[in-house]
Structure formats: C-alpha cells, structure tokens
Design a protein around this nucleic acid. Structure first.
Length: 808
DNA sequence: GAGTTTGAAACT
DNA sequence: CAGTTTCAAACTC
C-alpha cells in the first residue's frame, strides 16, 4: 500500500480523495480525531487527537492502546453487555442499536480511531487484558436513554481475548475479529457478541473462538437485543455479514498507517433499526459491511481511518461486496449505505476496503469531527416515509456530515447538472413495504425500517457530498424526526456507498475508485451489488430522499437537489463548476476506458457526443467492470495526475510525467503543458521545451497572453460600441426630417466617437504587434473605421426605419 | 468539418 | 518492461 503523505493529501483535491490515504495515514503526523464527535457526554473523554500516529498502534499494552473509542450515552450505566465488547485484531466494531436508541459518539471515538493503526500488530492474535479493560470501562450503554458510550475500542491479540472472559460477555479472540455492538434497544437486554461461526445467543457471552483462526471475525454486541436482531457475521473475505434485514447504521472509521501491511483496522459502529415491516423471520441475510472513511478535520491534515474490513468465510458473507472508496482526498468521507448480497463466495482483495452492508441496513458513517463540533448519533423518531424510506443521506457541510440511512433498496437515478462537473444521483428507495406512496407522505410502518439516527438533538446540518458552502436545493424538507441517521462531523467530505445490483464477479479495488465514486444501487437491480457512481452524483432529486444542508437544521426532502461541489484536480468548487466540462466524443471505447475524459474523471457522460456510451447508470454493471479493469491495471488510474511533487517541491507536477516526442511539450498534447505545469524530472519527453528557462515556452506563453489580452480588449471595445449604439437607438429620436437624409449624423455622438476611436486604436495596436508596414497599418485602421462607420449608418438606418414605422 | 497529428491508454 | 496498437483529443487546413 502506498502511503500518501500528508503533504500530498493536502494538495489533492477533496473530491479526489485518495482512498489509500484513507487507509494509510502517515505516522509522522499527529493523529487527529477522525471523528470528533462531541456528544453531550457526561464523562469527559480523553482526547487523543494530538496523539502521534505511532501511538495509534494497537498493541496488547493497555497504555499503548489508542483504539479506545467512546460511544457514550448520556447515562453511562455499565451493563453486563459492556464487557461484551470484543476486540478483534482488525478492530472491527459494529455498534448497532435499536431505532430509538441514541448513539452518541464522543470525540474520543474519532480520536481513538484515528490513532489506530492497521499494522501487523493489529492482527496480533492476543488480546490484551488492558485493552479489554479499557474497552470495557469506556464503553457504556445506558438503556435508560438508549445511548451507548463507547469510550474505547482496542484491538488486541486474540490469544488474550479469553482472559477477560468473565468481564466480557464476548471476547474476540481471533485476529481480525470484529466487534459488533448491536441494538441499544431495550433497557436491560443483554448485549450479545457473536462470532460469525458461532450461534448467536443474545445475552450470552461467547469467549470461545479459534485463537489461531486467521480469519477475522465480527463480534456482535447486542444491546437490549431485540428478537429481530440477527447476529452479524464477518466473512473471511473481509466482509461483514449480517442476517438482519433491519436497518443498520454503521459508523466506520478506518485508519491506515503507512506501516500497515495487513488489513486495515476497521471500526464499524452500526445501529440496527428494526423495521416493523420486517419480521424476524423475514429478515434478509445480507451482509453488513460497512466501511467508513472519516475525514480529517480541517485542522488535522489527512487523517483517515479505515473502518472495518471484514474477513469472514461465512456463507452469508458477500465477497464481492466491497465498498469502493473513491480516491478521495483525505478529508473525504465514505458512507456506506445498505448493501445486501445473498451469497458470496469470492474472496476480496486485501487491498480493497470492502464494506458490505446488509440490504436495507442503514449504515451511518462517522467522519472525523473537529474537537469543536461533537458528533452525536441519536435515533430520531421513526417517522419514516414508507414511500421514501429515507434512503441514504449523506449530509455534510465542511463541518457537518450527516448520513441518512436508506430505507429499503434504493435505486439510483443519474442526474447531471449541465455545466457542472458533478453528477447527481437520485436515490429512489424501492418500497418493499407499502411503499408506493408519495415521497412526502410519511408512513409509520417505515418507522422502524428506517430509523433515523439523529446526530445531536439539536439541528443538524445535512449536506450531500460535500464541499463547503455549496448551494443545496432543498425540496420538501423532512422533519428531523424522519428516519435518518445523522452523524454530524466536521469533516469536509463524505461519500455514499449504496447497494446496487449484485456484482459479485466484480470486485474492483475500490481503494482507488474514480474521484467521488459512490456505490449505489443500480436501478432496477436486485438487492445486491453496487453501482459505482461518481460521488458527485450523490444528489437526490425530486421524489427520492434527499439530504438537505442547512445551517439551522437538516431536513430530508422528497425533492431536494443537492449538488456536490468537490474540488477536482485542484480546482475549487467554484472553478470546477464554472468550468464546463467538455463533452467527450468517444466512439469506440464506450466511454468505459480512460480514453474518455468523462470516465477518467469519474463522471457520467452528460451532454456528450459519444456513441454507444456505457458511462451511465443504465450500464452500471459494465461501468463497474470497467472501473475494476482500470484499477486492476493501474490502482491509481483515477487519481489526479497532477499532484504535488517531491518533498521540497512546491510546484505541482505530473504524477507520471509525460512522454511527448514531437510536440516539444508545448502543445496540449502534452499533459504537463495542458495542466500548465512544467515538465519534471520524471517526464520521459523528448525535445522538451516545457521548462522554466525555455525561450520557446516563454515566447509561447507571451504570445498566448498577448493574444488573450487582445481578444479581451477587442471584445470589450466591440461590446462597448454595440451597447452605445443600442443606447443611442433607445434614446428619443432627435429631430428627424421626413427624408432622414442627415439622420446618421445625429448618431455620431461623443460616446460613439469614443468607441470608434477605441476600435481604431485597437486595430492599430494589433497591426503594430504584427509588425505590419506603415501602409498596411493605415489601411487596417481605415478599414476598421469603415466598419465602424457602417455600423453607425446601419444602426441609424434601422432606427429611421423603426421611427418611420411608428410615424415618428 | 474533414483530415492529420499526437501521446496516453490499452494491449501484446 | 518494452513495443505495438488503439483511441480520442488537439491541431491543421
């Protein structure tokens, strides 16, 4: 795994977040809280944001364990379940709660996650007692208020998992085990941790496990276990499988350190939302795989935590259901929204950070939050609209990230905004229940299905992807109580991953998906699978559930159009949006190869001139395959080509360098020149003239600038002349003789003369710059004068005709 | 607008 | 990894 330096990350456009950056965090940098949520936590949680990444190692030593995560409820009443927390080497943590339960994330959580390293040590087989203790203590669940406080989650080696068995109802012993904390449902109900291969027994602790089993497992912690709750099983393929059809909200925070060679540590906090419509028996056996990439707070550079990477071999696991995280800039966030896959047999690549989510589950991803802004996760009242069971909603501004769970299978409709580089996706939830209703119509039945997680009791800002201060069109805002999980974070970006059609055969390395790629359900597709959609598409329009971003509060609207504004290739949102994307003209590539700029930029084709285009949602399967192919060929295929140079090099430079041979790197054939950057040492160009001291380059630049200036000046002059003439025409007509013989003269006013002179001067300058002979200069000036005069006469004549027509 | 040139991407 | 082919954009006329 490549390690992305903080510097590089800082340079990368937000929209092009490097997924690896998410997983790999430079150890040299102090770890900032990836998710800094401040809940109204009673107990102070130690902030570890300042903790260096080195400290993030998950080690048996309690002191060194930085994995502690805090989910604190307002009432931290230790329950037997508290001890049930298991620590897996992979640090997969799923916390699920009943819809009503309030999940609060403290800053410590994000901090702890940020501190975690996905080092080999993480995969250690022993679980440190201290880690368990820490985990135990900090993690409290208060049934009273349905809040869970997870102070710390430490990954430890599996061998030690057995030690604290008495303290923990369940101990995760194996490497790669994942802790799932599910349902904070009813008070007094036990928390169940269950290994994938084990039979889940709510309330019963499971300490057993194959200590030597290399396969990581998920621990399921059920709090206030509901009958509907099904154990969550981790799959060997780095996937987390759950048998519950309930809405699952997961928050994953994953951090990847450069050192980490193994699977990244993943923290998944899931909250199960029971849907009334779903009976325990009817529960679908989908997989819960959630991977959340938390973004760093603005203050903290590029701290990404990679949340769970499930490794389970259970049949329910969906191997191919990895959640692709597009190459996003570190401050990006990835949200995984319901994923369901009936079966799975393929193993996932270790590189990829798969996130599997059971269908209908809601995953709440928590991004890094700044210390200032606490992250609160609370379940709002289940006033969910059946029709629009609140599909996933990623809400986030630069400071707030909210994810609203998708109710049932959402479908995605491609939406693009002309002139915008960003694509939008309409999330249309397939109404499994009584759902053909209007989007705006709330339904009680869906209440449980889509348990909203309200981040914080107060108003929440919700935004769709993610760039600060972008306009979001909101339609039919929903009450805060609407079923949606809201996680407020201070992160700048987030990504949505939504279920799509089953594409088990397709297991792209999602770590490097196109910028802003989102996994979304394919339209009309089954419950399984992902559609890879540019994150920019994460807009919900019209009837689909929407996430609105508002300063005062968030609301989901049935017809909200949100536009993601993510910087692309260094362009600011404004720049990127202002610059209209050039339509492609692909004919043979089906727009599914990097030849196509649209595809290469992770965009759908829109208003293009391409033929046989497959770069759209209608061909999601093909598109996903193509992405996988590209990533297989080049894991960095979708990363920005223009990045920061080596350390010490402030200039931007091409990541690969050009290979120009004939253009001298002074034409737009050259990617360096096109990007307006100098060729660098990594370029393999021949006869390069694109260097600082190149006279050709200087001349070219000078000419280009001069030409641009001339064009601007001429345009301005002509515009002025035209406008002045128009003004004259609009003025009351002076005395006009019936014959109108002298009328044109009346239009030669001072303004017209000035404009004419400007045109003449401009023409003279132009002639001189081209080194024209004196005679030629004069001729050009006279010619220009003739043009001006003709224009005046023409205007006057027209005015005369107009006046005559009205008998003036 | 058609044809050519160019170099990245894809392929072998 | 190198050579070749394919492809679409850039460029020229």
């Amino acid at each position: 795994m490549d390690v992305v330096s903080p510097e590089l990350n800082s340079l990368l456009p937000d929209e092009i977040m490097d997924t690896e950056a998410i997983e790999v965090v430079p150890h040299s940098q102090p770890v900032s809280a990836m998710v800094q949520s401040e809940a109204s936590v009673d107990t102070p949680v130690p902030m570890e944001t300042d903790t260096p990444a080195e400290n993030l190692k998950v080690c048996p030593d309690a002191t060194s364990v930085k994995l502690a995560q805090t989910l604190s409820t307002s009432i931290s009443t230790p329950t037997p379940t508290d001890s049930a927390l298991g620590i897996s080497s992979e640090s997969h943590v799923l916390i699920s709660g009943s819809p009503s339960s309030l999940l609060t994330l403290k800053p410590a959580l994000s901090i702890s996650t940020a501190t975690t390293k996905t080092t080999d040590s993480v995969t250690a087989t022993t679980v440190s007692t201290s880690g368990l203790q820490k985990l135990q203590a900090p993690f409290t669940i208060s049934p009273a208020n349905h809040q869970i406080i997870l102070n710390k989650v430490a990954s430890s080696q599996a061998t030690e998992a057995t030690k604290p068995a008495e303290t923990l109802q369940q101990v995760i012993k194996q490497d790669g085990q994942k802790l799932l904390v599910t349902t904070i449902g009813k008070p007094g109900q036990p928390i169940v941790l269950q290994l994938p291969h084990m039979t889940s027994k709510p309330g019963a602790s499971q300490t057993s496990g194959d200590l030597k089993s290399p396969v990581p497992h998920f621990k399921v912690l059920t709090i206030g276990g509901r009958s509907e709750l099904k154990p969550v099983v981790g799959s060997p393929a780095n996937q987390l499988t759950t048998v519950q059809a309930q809405q699952l909200k997961a928050v994953q925070i994953a951090k990847k350190t450069p050192v980490s060679s193994g699977t990244p540590i993943k923290f998944i906090i899931t909250k199960t939302v029971n849907s009334k419509s779903l009976s325990p028996q009817t529960s679908v056996p989908p997989v819960i795989a959630g991977r959340v990439v938390t973004q760093n707070s603005p203050v903290v550079p590029a701290r990404t935590i990679t949340l769970s990477e499930p490794h389970n071999s259970s049949l329910q696991s969906i191997p191919g259901k990895k959640i692709a995280i597009s190459p996003l800039k570190t401050p990006s966030k990835v949200t995984v929204v319901s994923v369901a896959s009936p079966t799975s047999n393929s193993s996932q690549k270790s590189v990829a950070l798969p996130v599997n989510v059971a269908l209908g589950q809601q995953i709440l991803t928590v991004q890094q939050t700044t210390p200032v802004s606490p992250v609160k996760v609370a379940t709002s009242q289940p006033t969910v609209q059946n029709i629009k069971p609140v599909p996933s909603v990623t809400v986030g501004s630069s400071q707030f990230k909210t994810i609203i769970p998708l109710a049932t299978q959402p479908t995605v409709q491609q939406i693009q905004v002309p002139g915008s580089r960003f694509h939008y996706v309409r999330l249309v939830t397939a109404t499994t229940a009584s759902s053909t209703g209007q989007p705006s119509a709330p339904s009680t039945s869906s209440i449980q299905t889509a348990k909203p997680v309200v981040v914080g009791t107060g108003p929440v800002r919700m935004s769709v992807p993610i760039v600060p201060a972008q306009t979001v069109k909101q339609v039919a805002p929903k009450p805060l109580t609407s079923s949606a999980q809201v996680l407020t974070t201070t992160q700048t970006q987030q990504r949505l991953i939504m279920p799509a059609t089953p594409l088990q055969q397709i297991q792209p390395n999602f770590t490097n998906l196109p910028p802003g790629t989102v996994l979304a359900p394919a339209p009309g597709s089954g419950n399984v699978g992902y559609a890879v959609v540019p994150a920019q598409y994460v807009t919900q329009l019209q009837q689909s559930q929407f996430v609105t971003l508002s300063s005062s509060g968030f609301t989901t609207s049935s017809s909200v159009q949100t536009q993601a504004r993510l910087p692309l290739n260094g362009l600011t949102p404004a720049e990127s949006t202002s610059r209209q994307r050039k339509p492609c003209n692909c004919t043979k590539s089906q727009c599914l190869k990097l030849y196509c700029d649209c595809f290469a930029n992770g965009e759908f084709c829109n208003n293009c001139n391409c033929n046989n285009c497959f770069n759209n949602l209608e061909h999601e399967t093909e598109r996903l395959k193509a992405i996988k192919t590209c990533l297989d060929r080049n894991p960095e295929a979708f990363k920005p080509k223009i990045g920061k140079g080596k350390e010490g090099e402030s200039e931007r430079r091409h990541s690969k360098g050009c290979n120009c041979k004939r253009s001298g790197c002074l034409k737009n054939y050259c990617e360096c020149y096109e990007a307006k950057i100098m060729c660098s040492s990594i370029c393999k160009c021949i006869g390069c003239k694109n260097f600082e001291e190149s006279p050709e380059r200087k001349t070219l630049m000078h000419l280009a600038d001069a030409a641009e200036v001339r064009v601007q000046q001429q345009t301005a002059a002509k515009t002025k002349l035209s406008s002045q003439i128009s003004d004259l025409l609009m003025r009351p007509t002076p005395v006009i003789s019936s014959g109108g013989g002298r009328m044109p003269y009346t239009f030669v006013t001072k303004e017209v003369l000035e404009a004419t002179c400007e045109c003449l001067l401009e023409q003279a300058k132009k002639a001189e710059q081209t080194h024209q002979p004196q005679a030629e200069v004069e001729r050009l000036i006279l010619e220009e004068f003739g043009h001006c005069l003709m224009s005046i006469i023409s205007s006057a004549g027209k005015a005369k005709a107009d006046c005559a027509s009205i008998n003036c």
